[in-house]
Design a binder for these strands. Structure first.
Lengths: 333, 333
DNA sequence: TTGTAAGCGTTATCAT
DNA sequence: ATGATAACGCTTACAA
């Protein structure tokens, strides 16, 4: 039960060598074959595992990566997380999750409190990019990779997405399906993706009469509320297509419309952004623009590992191309 | 940029006291008021944060909790994770995720490799409970809480669920809605929940002619495949209700049925188990039995913290009661 | 109440 | 090639 974990000392004793030799062998440095064997054998017999805390203390850094997001409940972040796991796999690094839940971005505070040993590297995907947060990130004593579109001047590794392109893809698709009045259901405008996608839509629709609704959160509930507002419009004003700023909002719209007996896509076409795993499962399956969350997570993990091994390299950037996935909610084939 | 993190030594120098006083003050031990003030001030000015690795090494344990699950992609586990976060919040403990992804449960290996400092406590929800895994858990040098139904003899803290009760709830409900032939779509029988739910169904349906299908995984795809088998049955054999072993399977059935033009619930009623967040969003919304994943996560975190502070207390057990949530997929109101 | 010093388990430097 | 030893930053007897 309370067997004390074996340390290098026990291994050394058992192998009849010094602790230095044990450390060397276990870290793959050269040693005489028989020394190597004896140490390996002793370690195996004792079930020795190095103490991560001690190693981290000595080395000045462990292999602990933290992923910080605003809301782990959103499937997008689960996928991002899976991507990070993919990118980390094989490196021996471990992943921690830090989610601030619903609170208005406590991420800055969280970032400041990441002490070494708890986190040796950070992947962060902040909904809101306050200058305070950016400052904490730039000043962070540990390597940071941001998943999101930073201003070019910010000296941080980042994985970006072409937001405007994503919105355009969906918008053009809806148009090509014959939609005349396309409404936009946006997320909170004070968030980075919220404002980027809103701006992109406004630019695209400036000559069309696209109605714009803004919601308080990127959730299904908000989508349902937005639907209610849409349903209250006069017949002439009612859109024949909705472009939602993310899939959760789109699903809310979808649910609202179907409950009200509106046929999708016949009477109302609906498209989202993110292409969460569930998008294809719904009925009708949701047309969406994939932002490749999993790939972004993987790329972020790669950038982070690069930076952890090469702390003073110039900041790098990866950009992921959005991809339209047409399904039943816009096009009954 | 590469500012070396301040340590107790710098704080002590700045405050004009010894490192011992710094440690004492920062850990809330009594000290003279002016000493306290000077230390606090110095720490604040320097932006001092204790090194988690060093503290963990010295104390023999940090506050790092690991959650190990088979597949983070399943929303049930996201909810479990959120529950663990809830239960940990305020305790200063941090959460790590370990997921083996799709691989045939490598959890045993994972558990054996949890070195101290990386994980000071473990919450594990294993799909398969091999005796090998159980042994690693019982022998684990760090506190462990299992989310799942252990044999009573296993001396481990656990959070359990009444599987048989959950299946019964759904079965009786389907019967009460007038279903005559209820089919069961089970998960992999070599998993703990897979076999428990299957056994429960067989017991309930032994006098009825309930058909039983078994799938290879708890996923939407498997559900869709199961639907195809169901659809291939002769009209006389076809069920008028399906009870799926989890919501992902149920959603697959739902999707298959709707695509085939089968009306749900009129021609086929569908019920799942787990009550994932998305269950209510689907159309028709999915009837499901809630296993209160989030609450189970919270309870697991509480048990773990208790054990971490009281290592030799007798094993505890919490049992969560399943709850039927009736929605449109079984009952058009 | 405060300071000195030991030690947690590891890696790395320096002799040998 | 190997062994003795110092050091990473922290907490905690023990002394003063």
């Amino acid at each position: 039960m309370t067997t004390r974990r074996p340390t290098v000392v026990q291994v050394a004793r058992r192998a009849g060598v010094s602790i230095a030799s044990v450390s060397r062998v276990l870290n793959g440095k050269a040693a005489r074959p028989d020394t190597t064997d004896r140490v390996r054998a002793a370690a195996a017999e004792l079930g020795y595992l190095p103490d991560a805390a001690a190693r981290s203390l000595k080395l000045g850094s462990g292999r602990q990566v933290t992923l910080a997001v605003d809301d782990i409940g959103n499937p997008v972040y689960s996928e991002l997380m899976q991507g990070v796991v993919d990118g980390l796999s094989g490196s021996g690094a471990r992943l921690s999750i830090a989610s601030t839940g619903q609170e208005p971005s406590e991420l800055s505070a969280l970032v400041r409190n990441l002490s070494r040993g708890l986190a040796d590297g950070l992947v962060i995907s902040p909904l809101r990019r306050s200058s305070e947060l950016l400052r904490s990130l730039v000043d962070s004593p540990i390597p940071v990779v941001v998943v999101g579109n930073l201003a070019d001047a910010v000296p941080l590794d980042s994985v970006r997405i072409d937001s405007a392109g994503a919105v355009r893809l969906a918008y053009r698709h809806l148009q090509s399906m014959g939609a005349a009045r396309i409404a936009f259901v946006g997320g909170p405008p004070d968030t980075a993706p919220g404002s980027a996608r809103l701006t992109a839509f406004r630019q695209l629709a400036q000559h069309d009469d696209g109605r714009v609704l803004v919601t308080g959160s990127f959730t299904v509930r908000s989508g349902e509320r937005a639907w209610n507002k849409l349903a209250a419009l006069s017949k002439a004003e009612r859109p024949d297509a909705v472009l939602a700023a993310n899939d959760l909002l789109a699903l809310g719209i979808l649910r609202g419309a179907l409950s009200a007996g509106v046929a999708v896509p016949e009477q109302l076409a609906v498209a989202g952004i993110d292409d969460i795993t569930f998008a294809r499962v719904f009925s009708p399956a949701l047309t969406s623009v994939s932002l490749r969350s999993r790939e972004r997570g993987r790329l972020a993990a790669e950038l982070l590992q690069h930076r952890m091994s090469e702390p003073s390299a110039p900041p790098q950037m990866r950009t992921v191309t959005p991809r339209l996935v047409v399904r039943e909610s816009t096009c009954r084939s």
